[in-house]
C-alpha cells in the first residue's frame, strides 16, 4: 500500500492551506491578542467571547453560515461578486477564510496569554529608555512572548490540518483545490477503500501525535514562563 497521486495532492493541499492560514492568522491575531491583553474597555469581554466562539461551535454551524453568506445570494457573496472575485465556496480562498475563523482562538489565546504574562513593566522600562512603539514591540514584546507565538503557530497549523466539518460543507471535494487530507480519508471510507483510508489516517495520527509531543516538550522546557496551553 502506498500513497496515490490523489493522496499526495491532498497532503500537499493541506500543507499549503495550513501554512497560508497560519501566516495570515499570526498577522491578524497579534493585534487582536495585544488589544485583548491590554484593554480595560467593556468590549474586552464580548470580543473575547466572539474570538473564542469557534472553540465551542459545531463546525456545521460555521459551515452552514459560510455556505449561505458566501453563496451568490449571501451578503459576503454579493460583495465578492461585486469585486469581481466570484463566490468563495468550493475555492481555496474560501477554505482559507473558513479556516481562519475556525482556528482563530487557537492563535489569539496563546499570544494573548503570553503578552499578559509579560506585564506592563518591561514595556514601560523600554519606553523610558527611549524606544518607540514599533521598537518596543519587536525588541521587547516579541522576544518575551516568543513561547506564546510558537504555541500559537503550532496550534493554528495543527488545528487547520485537522479541520473537517466546515470543509465538507463548503468544499465540494475538488482535487488540488478543496480536497484536503481529512476529506480524502472520508472519500476513501465512503468508497470502501479502507486500505487507502488506513494509510492516510495513520499518517494523520502520527503527525498529530508528533506535533503535540513537540508542543508539550517545548512548554515543559519553558515551564517557568507561565504558558501551559492545553495542560
Amino acid at each position: 500500500m502506498s500513497l496515490s497521486p490523489d493522496d499526495l495532492d491532498a497532503i500537499w493541499l493541506t500543507l499549503r492551506l495550513a501554512t497560508t492560514v497560519t501566516l495570515l492568522l499570526l498577522i491578524l491575531a497579534t493585534p487582536i491578542a495585544w488589544w485583548l491583553a491590554k484593554t480595560d474597555s467593556w468590549l474586552k469581554v464580548p470580543i473575547g467571547a466572539l474570538v473564542a466562539l469557534p472553540l465551542v461551535l459545531p463546525p456545521t454551524v460555521l459551515g452552514f453560515y459560510l455556505l449561505v453568506l458566501m453563496g451568490p445570494n449571501g451578503s459576503i457573496g454579493e460583495f465578492t461578486k461585486a469585486l469581481g472575485l466570484g463566490t468563495l465556496p468550493f475555492t481555496f480562498s474560501g477554505l482559507v477564510i473558513a479556516s481562519m475563523i475556525y482556528s482563530l482562538p487557537f492563535v489569539v489565546q496563546p499570544i494573548q496569554n503570553a503578552i499578559q504574562s509579560i506585564g506592563d513593566r518591561p514595556i514601560e522600562v523600554a519606553a523610558t529608555l527611549g524606544a518607540g512603539p514599533v521598537d518596543r514591540f519587536f525588541s521587547v514584546v516579541l522576544p518575551l512572548a516568543k513561547p506564546g507565538f510558537v504555541t500559537a503557530t503550532i496550534l493554528g497549523f495543527a488545528h487547520t490540518v485537522g479541520e473537517f466539518g466546515i470543509v465538507l460543507m463548503i468544499g465540494g471535494s475538488i482535487p488540488k483545490e478543496t480536497r484536503v487530507v481529512s476529506i480524502q480519508i472520508y472519500d476513501h471510507v465512503e468508497a470502501l477503500q479502507y486500505g487507502n483510508a488506513h494509510f492516510l489516517a495513520a499518517i494523520m495520527l502520527g503527525f498529530s501525535f508528533i506535533v503535540l509531543l513537540g508542543l508539550y516538550g517545548f512548554q515543559r522546557k519553558r515551564s517557568g514562563e507561565g504558558l501551559h496551553y492545553g495542560r
Binding site: L67, G71, N73, T87, F90, L168, G172, S173, I174
Partner: peptide, 20 residues
C-alpha cells in the same frame, strides 16, 4: 466545473443554496 457532494442530498443542496 465539478463540485462534489458527499451524497445526492448535498449535490442538491449546493444548487438550492445557489452555490452551483
Amino acid at each position: 466545473k465539478w463540485v462534489l457532494g458527499e451524497n445526492i442530498a448535498q449535490a442538491y443542496q449546493f444548487v438550492d443554496s445557489g452555490n452551483a
